[in-house]
Design a protein around this nucleic acid. Structure first.
Lengths: 247, 247
DNA sequence: CAGTGGTCTAGACCACATG
DNA sequence: ATGTGGTCTAGACCACTGG
């Protein structure tokens, strides 16, 4: 028998079996008995090991997936995720690029960049005409190789006529702003809410579908009051901590 | 047959049955076919209505509970929740009490107020000695009678020697600050992360256990740098929107 | 191809809330 | 006492992944 499953269960009335299994698996993740990247035995096998039905076992696994400790891949198996980052975003002043406890381990991957007509909601957010054009930038941020943040950014194309050329060298939005004479801007509004992973967003973040997420929507505004950027981003509910500081 | 369940299901490969049931129930909540406060038929009956097993039906219900549209009460039934508030908290400047779109519909209920020794973590957060004393205030905020925010607040007792007397008249922390000569303070740090409802927190917020939550931890600091308040609060993941604005 | 996770079924027992 | 939701079981078929 696998060592994780050793020992009898506490009475069911004190704590459901599936939560006791959750406890043991979580403990195994935290102590390193299950190491990141490792593949778990199959669910049928695991259920036999824990001496429960597959349904009960899956309930424990589902909770661990929602919390980001495990990730199931259909047809492949259940894998132990890298421990989630407590990501500290300092959003005071004009400090846009998030400072991180371990900034060198952060990687930004550009998934797509294209110019086109905005949908109605985006046009309204940016306070532009529906027939104007916008740049649409989709990026993924990874910490130690683990995707932790997926964002869509929108910029009015009339202001940033050379977005792609300015962005390409360093994948830096700040560079784009600077190249278009937009050095003086401010993060004027940040909205935080909740959501659940769709099939697509789950795939991008390497999470199980239906995982709870935190969603952010933010505007950057130029000195003259014009909105020059709309950001919509999501990250896993657990394992990321957002920090707002004021001196 | 209940009208909500009318019509055949789309092929299972396009969308799982439980998600199709979820879709229909959600639509019923949004259109008012299921009105707030209403009790749903029992799960066995509902499963028969939707022509699925109880397990499949419960899967749809669970998702709706996680999103705050429904709430199950053991032994009593499943009820339709009041539509969730999009709660806008303006946290700029010294504006502590959250401004709300409909402030008159907000109610604050004090659950407990007591003076005692802090636990180790609280002492560290408030930067006080472990053997100092702190006031511990637990409150619940309701919008239109629906609990949406549960908070624990801690204050160093050496500063606020008459907390209870100053707090009682208006249930106002600001009044306590004013009565102790602490008019000049600042919200210096706000940390946002995720969590899941325990049995206790679920009961207080009238949610189903294991519902995903957003958690906030914040400090208020006096002019001299002394931390005078620690707040730890939680609210349902969905249905609340936190807004940070800067002019 | 075999094995995986995703979905679904038809039962069952329990603790709990309500009338 | 009845009915409720919470938990659990032992099966089954499917789509997908991998060797």
């Amino acid at each position: 028998m696998h060592p994780i499953a050793q020992g009898a269960y506490a009475p069911r009335r004190t704590r459901p079996i599936w939560l006791q299994i959750y406890d043991r698996l979580l403990h195994a993740c935290e102590t390193g008995a299950l190491s990141p990247g490792q593949r778990l035995p199959g669910e049928i096998s695991l259920a036999r090991t824990f001496d429960v039905s597959r349904v009960t076992l899956r309930r424990a696994l589902r909770r661990l997936q929602q919390e980001g400790h495990l990730q199931a891949r259909k047809g492949a198996g259940v894998y132990v995720r890298q421990p989630l980052t407590r990501w500290q975003v300092d959003d005071s002043g004009q400090q846009l690029p998030a400072r991180t406890a371990d900034a060198r381990a952060m990687e930004t991957r550009t998934l797509s960049l294209a110019k086109g007509p905005p949908d109605a909601a985006t046009a309204e957010h940016l306070e532009i005409a529906p027939d104007a054009k916008v740049w649409h930038l989709t990026r993924l941020r990874l910490h130690k190789g683990v995707p932790i943040y997926l964002s869509d950014k929108f910029f009015p194309a009339d202001i940033f006529d050379r977005f792609d050329a300015a962005y390409a060298p360093a994948q830096s939005v700040q560079d784009v702003f600077a190249a278009h004479g937009q050095a003086d801007w401010q993060r004027t509004e940040t909205r935080i809410s909740g959501a659940f992973a769709t099939a697509e967003t789950a795939a991008a973040l390497e999470l199980s579908p239906s995982t709870p997420l935190i969603a952010v929507e933010a505007y950057n505004t130029a000195r003259n009051g014009r909105r020059i950027e709309l950001t919509q981003g999501i990250w896993p509910l657990t394992g990321v901590e957002l920090v707002f500081q004021r001196s």
